[in-house]
Nucleic acid binder design. Sequence first.
DNA 1: CGCGGAGTTGAACGCATTCAAGTCTTGTGG
DNA 2: CCACAAGACTTGAATGCGTTCAACTCCGCG
Lengths: 248, 248
Amino acid sequence: MLLDRAYPETFTHQEALFLSGLQGPPQTVRSRTRIVRAHTMLDRSLYLEEGMVGRYTCDRSGRRQFVGLQIPGDYFDLAAYLLGTLDHDVDALGEATLRETAFEDLNRVRDEHPELYSKLWRISLIDASVHRYWIFRTGRLAGKARLANFLAEMYTRLYARGLCGPEGYRLPLSQNDLAEVCGMTSVHVNRLLRELRLDRICTILDGMVQVENPVALIRLGQFSPAFLYLESTIAERVALLLNGTAEG
Amino acid sequence: MLLDRAYPETFTHQEALFLSGLQGPPQTVRSRTRIVRAHTMLDRSLYLEEGMVGRYTCDRSGRRQFVGLQIPGDYFDLAAYLLGTLDHDVDALGEATLRETAFEDLNRVRDEHPELYSKLWRISLIDASVHRYWIFRTGRLAGKARLANFLAEMYTRLYARGLCGPEGYRLPLSQNDLAEVCGMTSVHVNRLLRELRLDRICTILDGMVQVENPVALIRLGQFSPAFLYLESTIAERVALLLNGTAEG
DNA sequence: CGCGGAGTTGAACGCATTCAAGTCTTGTGG
DNA sequence: CCACAAGACTTGAATGCGTTCAACTCCGCG
């Protein structure tokens, strides 16, 4: 059941067990299928057990902008619980495994486990904090720093949850997807990735992001993980990774 | 007490009254003073009664990026309640009037008024939705559309809450501030504003945004207010404003 | 009167896009 | 098994949007 990856930074083992009990069975969806359509009424919330999903909106001419990327252990549409619909679409990026929680069950959490209910709220607040970081990145960082910053974010989030080692991580995004994350074109992403490769900072090969120089990556990307609100022992582990005090 | 502007889209009159009772007395802060510093432990949450405040983070060289702008009636740091600190700074943009709610009182809301507690969560979810819209805008829209989109957002949010008429609104932002909102330079903002003026779409004069052609503004900015999750009667009023069916 | 901040404008530069052509891989069907 | 189509990646060249640098005006304020 992979309880250990269900926001270990947030839930006790009992709470994770309880939440897991509310969830429906795991459902696997194929890569590149839509999971949620914007403005569609929903009656259940989704949890990502395995894989990655991307949240995005499109402009008038159909060009896509990702507004969030979720990793295993994420509740990625809690917003629907209280808003009824999502303002954006959600797609599976690789093959993904999901589990659902009915809104009624979340109401039961509210009435019977207020503390746990608060923790769900807290998760959505961290989600919002990540959004703010994306605004900062997209608005203030130049191309190369922007890309590096994003790669550092995914590196950190996956590592913090024990989903990758210091050597790098799996990222089921094409260069075009990366462009739609960072607000640039795929041609430009291609050239920036080459620079990062020649700088011996990181290399993407067959969907694997190989982080050769974490220190340079976070320095170039001006990355700082404070916005993730990591639990302190995890934050320390991450700091070791990012500051190069550990192996790299 | 201005209860009517306290999220009329969310709270009943009783609820607004109750929440107001939890708040401390109004505090007025001068323009351009810092209200919250990032990463500082907090024990109360803030509500904006009058004026505007801006949330921002700075890059390594000190250049600022706004990640949110709040208008009267906004609870703008609910995140601190469950996270303890904010990941960003908050400044008053004009003179602003604030009211505080102690975290302990929010805990009481949780235990005694679960439905109302959910509504506070809901507010923070709309806040996150606005963040996503900012990501979209900053990442996907070209300069002129980006600026128009932002001006349309503030127009809509203020109008929806009855804080401005169709003719326009007060915006205590310099061209440099606008640049820090939209992720561009103040020189460029200056040129784009001139274009908007010559196009007879909107004119900024002495801190007043005069919206001369709402329809063109939202069209140019590819603006759509769905992300605000407005209550239906308010949404209809806004639609009239933005579609030009109403007076302009 | 002089200072400083906000706004304005010109000119040069450069980052990023656009357009285009090519390679390579993968999957599909003949 | 090979031909072919489709998608991802790569690279070059030209264009242009937005930045940078700089100068100047306007205005409020000490």
